[in-house]
């Protein structure tokens, strides 16, 4: 009898007690999750209407964000995309609170670490977003300025400026995330410095004949242009 009591009934009673203690937490957690899902749907709809009222999609098209979403495989408008993110953020927040309500120590510890890291992810995402916008803006400005200056490789200049600005922002984002902090910085410095050095060496030694020809042609062209310049006064 004692054996049966110790091996089967006592563990069963203990588990049952634990289950009884856990059950209210579980139900609360479930209720929180359901509230979160409903609230997310409501907020998603409200924000969608607000974004459409302030013509966010038009601004997104102007800033090149629409193209960015398309390239990323997202066919939604920016309004719908942000509204959906807000909805998921609400669900995620309620899910986290729901999990914490369960009061499981291991999960609590993991969540704490996760939350400490979350600001870094957010900052990195913002840096990347602005990096993309700036790279588009400066790339286009460089392209137009180069075309108006008559530079034959204008497209290349525009692309180089765009890529450089984006790589710079990606480096900053990775540093923020703490991924290979020093490695990324050093790699960027090496690649960037390397390109400049390679160009200098190529122009100074390997391509000195080309450089000479190029400079002669450019200076010659300037003189020729000066002789053949337009006297048209546009105003």
């Amino acid at each position: 009898m004692n054996f049966l009591q110790r091996v089967i009934i006592e563990p069963f009673e203990s588990s049952y007690e634990k289950f009884l203690t856990f059950m209210p937490n579980f139900l609360t957690s479930l209720a929180l999750l359901i509230v979160g899902i409903v609230l997310a749907a409501v907020l998603r709809m409200v924000f969608l209407r607000i974004f459409r009222a302030i013509n966010l999609d038009k601004a997104a098209q102007r800033l090149g964000l629409f193209d960015m979403l398309l390239k990323g495989g997202i066919r939604d408008s920016l309004s719908a995309f942000i509204a959906r993110i807000i909805g998921w953020l609400v669900i995620f927040t309620f899910a986290v609170v729901a999990v914490q309500t369960l009061k499981i120590p291991t999960v609590e510890h993991l969540l704490e670490r996760f939350f400490l890291y979350l600001p870094n992810v957010f900052t990195a995402a913002v840096i990347l977003l602005f990096g993309y916008l700036f790279s588009n803006f400066f790339g286009r400005a460089a392209l137009i300025a180069s075309v108006n200056a008559g530079i034959q490789r204008a497209g290349l200049v525009g692309r180089l400026v765009k890529i450089t600005v984006f790589i710079l922002s990606a480096t900053m984002a990775m540093e923020q995330l703490g991924i290979g902090r020093d490695t990324v910085l050093i790699a960027f410095a090496i690649i960037f410095g390397g390109i400049v050095l390679a160009l200098a060496i190529a122009f100074g030694f390997g391509g000195r004949d080309i450089a000479r020809t190029y400079l002669q042609r450019t200076v010659g062209k300037e003189k020729e242009n000066e002789e053949n310049r337009d006297d048209i006064n546009p105003l």
Binding site: V147, G155, N228, D230
Partner: peptide, 18 residues
């Protein structure tokens, strides 16, 4: 007034390409 038509066309062509 002196004009350089070819240079103007070259600039237009560059724009149309890029």
């Amino acid at each position: 007034v002196s004009v350089n038509i070819q240079r103007m066309i070259d600039k237009f062509t560059l724009g149309a390409r890029e």
